[in-house]
């Protein structure tokens, strides 16, 4: 009797698994479409929208590289992703350390401000910031985007880091204090190393957000020579709207870096994203 039940249960699980697999397959069709279409010639796409290309072609990528300075755009994206991330994680961990481990006036306020800050759309900050950076003659310069990104993503990062911070035992830190450890030392020799995996998670998730950001990069880096991949793709959409394979090639190139990091760092991704919500 029992074995029959177990077998039925296992079969049930396999059935469910198959069902979920089918669902996921359908769910990912748009992504298959994107990649497959990017290898279809424009002429073929006119009559063959749905199936595998009869003739795999790299012409879209060639056209893409010819029409746009893709390496430059890649570098731009890299610049506005990598440079801010270090500051963000460093400043963020410092702040999370303060909020998570110290009692001080205003701590409650800061802790409670994190979520509201996350809910403010960037479009609200857009025009005043543009005015500010115009005055400083910093529009169309990477510095403006870097500074803005640091501030913009900090709340999201803080949200993640404060929950990671609670995993470090206070008594352990107090013991270190008794041993004569200064706070600055504590931060660099205890907190940061202990949080290393959490910081990797935060860095990866933060990098994903920054790489994918459009509005700020769009408004502050209009110069063709400085555009990021995402912004470049958006402007491509208007000019080459009818050339779907070309657009798909652009979409693929823009997303491949993030997908690669995701594939190799899924553990970090999941850990980072979950930290924000599961306390």
């Amino acid at each position: 009797m029992r074995t029959g039940y177990k077998r039925r249960q296992r079969m049930g699980k396999w059935l469910l698994s198959a069902g979920v697999a089918v669902f996921i397959f359908v769910d990912l069709i748009p992504i298959f479409f994107t990649v497959i279409t990017s290898f279809k010639s424009r002429d073929e796409y006119v009559y063959n929208v749905f199936s595998i290309p009869e003739r795999w072609s790299l012409e879209n990528y060639a056209n893409l590289f010819e029409a746009y300075d893709v390496p430059q755009m890649f570098l731009s994206s890299l610049t506005v992703t990598v440079i801010p991330i270090f500051f963000i994680v460093y400043f963020g961990t410092m702040a999370a350390f303060a909020i998570g481990k110290f009692e001080f006036k205003g701590r409650r306020i800061f802790a409670n401000m994190i979520f509201p800050l996350m809910s403010i759309p960037s479009v609200v900050m857009l025009f005043p910031l543009f005015r500010l950076f115009s005055k400083l003659n910093m529009t169309n310069k990477f510095g403006s985007v870097i500074v803005i990104y640091i501030g913009l993503i900090l709340p999201f990062i803080l949200n993640m880091l404060t929950s990671f911070m609670s995993s470090i035992s206070s008594s352990y830190l107090e013991a270190a204090m008794i041993d004569g450890c200064g706070f600055w030392q504590m931060f660099h020799r205890i907190i940061l190393p202990l949080l290393a995996p959490a910081l990797s998670a935060t860095t990866i998730v933060g990098a994903m957000w920054l790489w994918n950001e459009m509005l700020i990069a769009f408004i502050f880096l209009q110069d063709e020579a400085k555009r990021t991949l995402v912004v470049g793709l958006t402007s491509m959409q208007g000019l080459f709207q009818l050339d779907v394979p070309l657009l798909m090639a652009g979409a693929t190139i823009t997303t491949v870096p993030v997908i690669l990091i995701f594939v190799f760092g899924q553990k970090w991704f999941i850990r980072g994203l979950t930290a924000g919500g599961v306390k």
Binding site: I83, G143, K226
Partner: peptide
């Protein structure tokens, strides 16, 4: 250690400013 950390922050700030001047 404090001096080293301060130098680190200074270096990062320099990097930031450099980002501002990049490609100009």
């Amino acid at each position: 250690k404090k001096i080293i950390s301060l130098l680190l922050v200074a270096a990062m700030s320099a990097g930031l400013l450099l980002g501002c001047q990049k490609k100009e």
